[in-house]
Design a protein around this nucleic acid. Structure first.
Length: 485
DNA sequence: TTTTGAGTTGTTCGA
DNA sequence: GTCGAACAACTCAAA
């Protein structure tokens, strides 16, 4: 007779409001908590370097949190179906439970494992632990997937209020003790940390795990939530929640975030309806991205709008490299790219500016940007990253029109008016006064000397001219549009 | 089936 | 300095 239940953790590294874990506890059977580091299964995109750093620390945190409830997190490595088949063979559990992922390779893998389990008499069940709404729940009146955000989000919220978070049963869980030793690995065996010390400053900003996530949420409610509707555009001060990487790895429940935002807004009269709506709509974009990914599995690699397949992208390795390193000569762009490199994160407003610059000023294929973000962003998410890059490129759903080309000088002056953000990440310009800090090539020789800036030496001249690049992009995108008909 | 209103985040130009 | 229009029509979603 079987006597245990396996909870397979994936992108849900938390114990609070975790439907699969709760279901496992409710069976009353001893629980085995499992994580499989899988880079071997067909079609699964390997994590970027930043994500691996995060995963390492997040697993350490989950291990601790589970241990405090009496359960060990078992770590394994390899193609998930093989690992699970062997484990099932060894311990003969009565059930295997997990929370869903929405990429096609992940779904195929899960379906295969579910079928395997059913053949072996193991009850395999999946739950929604990642989204407010399942991607297939939201449709047009005719049953088709949605392609525009606003109707999508309206329909989602009209469908029903998102489910409330579940309280976790208190006390110790019943832990499964295997009779023979499991093939489990140590965290170090997974080799997730980078070899060079590129990530050494990440801990100044980040503390992966459930506690870190809750702290970020509380901080946000106390400081940036009031005025969020406007303030969220400002990279020069802490104006956003910083929850993205925690949400990426499921360290905090989206239902918890949604619900508690409502409570915080209710309690604090300084938080306006617009602030709440605005914050929740960001969660809505996360839902929308997953909706798009679910219905368009190739979202990260193929143009959603196939018209863009004919776009003549530039092959420009030096420009791509300058962009990646934050050496384009446009201070707000360079500050963003260096914030990314140094902290594993970039403010949302600046993400749009740097993405627009890569795509429209440099005419470089959005997929190069998507890949760089995938590798360097701690919150690199299969749905959000792909959907957002396509949105900026104009190839995505509900995308920006082609003539929307961000002016990096203007954006800098508007959203970083005192140059605080640029100064922080581009220290070689720190002594330049605003607004000249956003246009160093226009500063007088005397001002440059006084600020110790030598253009072309201590800081690059712009690698493209804004006005010329803008005209070039307008022409290229216009031609694409006309070529279609 | 046809019609209608609407669509995250911008920039530039000219009055 | 401020403000509205143009950019360019197109697609989506619902009535």
């Amino acid at each position: 007779m079987s006597s245990s239940v396996i909870v397979w953790f994936r992108d849900d590294l938390r114990i609070n409001d975790n439907p699969a874990l709760l279901a496992a506890i409710e069976t009353g059977l001893p629980v085995l908590a499992l994580y499989i580091f899988d880079e071997a299964s067909e079609g699964i995109r390997p994590l970027g370097r930043a994500s691996k750093w995060w995963l390492h620390h997040s697993l350490a945190s989950l291990t601790k949190n589970l241990a405090s409830r009496g359960v060990e997190l078992v770590l394994m490595k390899g193609p998930a179906h093989a690992v699970i088949a062997e484990l099932v063979q060894q311990i003969k559990p009565s059930a295997l439970l997990w929370n869903r992922r929405y990429g096609v390779a992940e779904r195929d893998l899960d379906a295969r494992i579910k079928a395997d389990c059913l053949k072996s008499g193991v009850d395999a069940r999946s739950f929604n632990g990642a989204l407010l709404y399942e991607p297939w729940e939201i449709t047009t009146k005719t049953g088709d997937p949605m392609k525009v955000f606003t109707p999508f989000w309206r329909a989602a919220q009209a469908l029903m209020a998102p489910a409330l978070p579940w309280p976790l049963p208190t006390g110790k869980m019943s832990a499964f003790k295997p009779s023979s030793a499991l093939n489990s690995l140590s965290l170090e065996d997974l080799s997730l940390l980078p070899k060079r010390d590129w990530a050494k400053h990440f801990p100044e900003t980040w503390s992966p795990g459930e506690q870190g996530a809750q702290e970020k949420l509380d901080n946000f409610f106390e400081s940036a939530f009031s005025g969020y509707a406007e303030g969220r555009n400002r990279p020069d001060y802490r104006s956003t929640s910083l929850l993205a990487p925690h949400l990426r790895f499921g360290e905090i429940s989206i239902r918890d975030v949604f619900q508690r935002a409502g409570e915080a807004a209710h309690l604090n009269p300084k938080i306006s309806d617009a602030d709440l709506r605005s914050f929740r709509s960001e969660l809505g974009w996360r839902e929308f991205s997953n909706h798009l990914l679910f219905h368009n599995p190739a979202l990260a690699s193929e143009n959603y709008n196939r018209t863009f397949d004919a776009f003549p992208w530039a092959d420009n390795a030096p420009a791509l490299h300058a962009w990646q390193r934050g050496l384009t000569g446009y201070p707000i762009v360079d500050a963003g790219m260096r914030e990314l490199w140094q902290t594993g994160f970039m403010h949302n407003r600046v993400r749009m500016i740097v993405a627009s610059f890569l795509i429209k000023h440099l005419l470089i294929d959005w997929r190069f940007g998507e890949n760089w973000f995938w590798d360097t962003l701690l919150d690199a998410d299969p749905a959000n990253n792909a959907a957002s890059w396509q949105w900026v490129a104009g190839s995505g759903a509900d995308a920006a029109p082609y003539y929307r080309i961000f002016n990096p000088m203007l954006q800098g002056e508007k959203f970083d008016p005192d140059g605080i953000y640029v100064r922080k990440y581009v220290p070689e310009l720190a002594a330049l006064r605003a607004p000249a800090i956003h246009t160093p090539w226009l500063a007088s020789p005397a001002d440059l000397r006084a600020a110790n800036v030598s253009l072309g030496k201590t800081y690059p001249l712009p690698i493209v001219d804004h006005a010329a690049a803008r005209e070039r992009a307008l022409g290229a995108f216009k031609a694409l549009k006309q070529g279609k008909s």
